[in-house]
């Protein structure tokens, strides 16, 4: 485990494109979470309702709801984490473009270990993102909570592992595209096209199957914002909000990760490198 990660680290540590993309990604991730209060402020200002800003930030960004709401925000399929998916595609398809995958195998890595190294890299990126989200969430939560207790800070913290699962599966999808398509440009375009194509498929699919489409399945673990402070349901204002994480949603998502990795494995095993 450690050896494979060290090899991956040797490959990327003086790769400028890696540092540029990962910095941009982490900046966006931190800015998106820590900047949420400012964003809400901007919105309330625009609609001339700045008096509500305190209420909004308390409702959405106070403990324990902050975890669910930032996980929902950071987990959006075509937003912040798209950068990380592109980075994975670049790192993986470069190995084929420059034929360095051959160098790895010839030197004595098995094809399985080559795949394992990439999966470990994805796990590391997912873990890093989750930790960043946790720290930003702590900051935003403490800034915007009226009352703070251990229970409120730690309550709903399980939305972070949910975010981790989503992100990991999403990056496995990127890994699959990178390994199967092999050409960096084509692979990135394929990912972007798929992000557009899936909603179109969804449109023609019967509604009950919608949540089983890959991107939907990932985003269905955390599918809405929520606030426990207020249940604003009137006949006129009746938006269903997610209260809890459903185990079946998590299973579907992990199932997709398994499918993606199996396809990567088959492609690596069968094809010439």
């Amino acid at each position: 485990m450690r050896k494979l990660l060290l090899i991956e680290w040797d490959k990327i540590r003086s790769y400028r494109a890696f540092w540029i993309i990962i910095s941009l990604y982490l900046f966006l991730l931190i800015a998106a979470v820590a900047g949420l209060p400012a964003f809400l402020h901007y919105i309330t200002d625009k609609i001339n309702a700045s008096v509500f800003i305190k209420i909004f930030t308390h409702l959405l960004l106070g403990f324990p709801d902050v975890w669910q709401n930032i996980a929902f925000f950071a987990g959006n399929r075509a937003f912040i984490k798209l950068l990380l998916a592109i980075l994975i595609i670049i790192l993986v398809s470069n190995e084929f473009t420059y034929h360095t995958v051959r160098m790895n195998i010839i030197s004595g890595l098995s094809r399985y270990q080559f795949l394992l190294a990439k999966v470990e890299l994805i796990l590391a990126f997912s873990l890093l993102s989750t930790i960043i989200l946790f720290l930003s969430g702590l900051y935003v939560g403490f800034e915007n909570s009226r009352t703070i207790s251990i229970q409120s800070v730690l309550g709903n913290l399980y939305f972070l592992p949910a975010y981790f699962t989503e992100l990991f599966t999403y990056l496995c999808f990127a890994l699959m595209i990178g390994v199967i398509i092999r050409k960096t440009g084509f692979a990135i375009i394929t990912l972007l096209i798929y992000l557009v194509v899936e909603p179109i498929i969804q449109y023609y699919l019967p509604d009950q199957f919608d949540k089983y489409l890959p991107m939907n399945a990932m985003n269905h673990i955390v599918w809405s914002v929520n606030t426990t402070d207020l249940t604003f349901r009137t006949p006129e204002f009746n938006i269903p909000l997610q209260q809890d994480i459903s185990v079946s949603d998590v299973i579907v998502c992990i199932g997709y990760a398994a499918v993606f990795l199996t396809l990567v494995w088959l492609s690596l095993q069968k094809k010439d490198l």
Binding site: D10, Y15, R16, Y98, R102, I106
Partner: peptide
């Protein structure tokens, strides 16, 4: 072993 052209990471 080397095979065909030299294969290395260009940025390293």
């Amino acid at each position: 072993a080397t095979l065909e052209q030299p294969v290395f990471y260009p940025h390293l």
